[in-house]
């Protein structure tokens, strides 16, 4: 199924204040692949992610979801294919109850009420949060909020999951649960994170961004074991890899 492919070609983007956030980024992510986007703060990770569902329009270059270039006209379809989990769940959860929040996407897709209800139940069950259905989201714990935020995206049945710092603000147990959950998804995954241990467990490939450019790209273990590369980009070689023979 080719529509799970994400391709970025020579992507450039400048913010209105003149800051050049992306300077010609190119990569190709295949069906079912889990790829980590790593890099120091301000490397352009979040800006890049915002291009993947057409929220930002590149000043040069293009994004292709499947075989379709992402434009204003194709953005609606792309947003259905690319589920985006934002960095701060508080930004993502804006409805009065968990149920309504998870139902927001399916309702906007124009699904009939019973199908919406089914999707919501399924998505909440998937993340283990059915019992919170009628709670207001702002009263949940950070881990619960994150799980519900993921459910809001799952309910839209996306092909590709894009996540910005999914493990931030989580306690170790919440993080462990998240990793288990992410491992169980067959989706194509693109994860921007500083949590390199999570990358080791989930992602098969790593793309290193710096100054708005791709500076390195390759298999996870090889990339993260490169001490010089890691240190040069504000990262650290994950401890778990020291057990892996080089």
């Amino acid at each position: 199924m080719s529509h799970h492919i994400v391709e970025v070609r020579d992507l450039c983007f400048s913010y209105p204040d003149g800051v050049e956030a992306l300077k010609g980024v190119s990569f190709r992510i295949l069906h079912g692949e889990s790829v980590a986007l790593v890099g120091a703060n301000g490397a352009g990770k979040s800006t890049l992610l915002l291009h993947l569902n057409g929220y930002l329009t590149p000043t040069r270059g293009e994004v292709r979801i499947g075989d379709v270039p992402l434009t204003r006209a194709t953005a609606v379809a792309a947003r259905r294919a690319v589920g985006m989990v934002f960095q701060d769940p508080d930004d993502q959860l804006f409805m009065p109850t968990v149920f309504e929040d998870v139902a927001f996407g399916p309702l906007n897709a124009g699904l009939p009420p019973d199908e919406v209800e089914r999707r919501v139940a399924l998505a909440l069950e998937r993340v283990g949060m059915v019992h919170l259905k009628n709670r207001p989201p702002y009263k949940l714990s950070a881990g619960e909020k994150r799980a519900v935020a993921i459910a809001t995206v799952l309910a839209m049945a996306p092909d590709i999951l894009v996540m910005d710092e999914p493990s931030s603000h989580l306690d170790p147990r919440g993080r462990r649960r998240l990793i288990g959950l992410l491992k169980s998804f067959a989706h194509t995954k693109i994860i921007a994170t500083h949590d390199l241990e999570l990358v080791v467990e989930i992602c098969s490939r790593v793309i290193v961004l710096a100054g708005g450019k791709v500076v390195a790209e390759g298999p996870t273990v090889e990339m993260l074991n490169d001490e010089c590369l890691m240190l040069a980009h504000g990262l650290e070689r994950p401890l778990s890899l020291s057990r892996v023979p080089r």
Binding site: L50, N53, Y55, V76, R79, R80, G83, M84, F86, D88, D91, Q92, F94, E100, A103, F104, G105, L107, N108, A109, P113, V116, E117, T152, V153, M156
Partner: peptide, 23 residues
């Protein structure tokens, strides 16, 4: 800034300006 991020999250989930309610 925050309002912008909330809006972004709404757009990401297919919000097109129409209010849809369940019941």
């Amino acid at each position: 800034d925050r309002a912008d991020r909330v809006y972004r999250a709404m757009v990401a989930r297919g919000f097109d300006g129409e209010i849809r309610v369940m019941r």
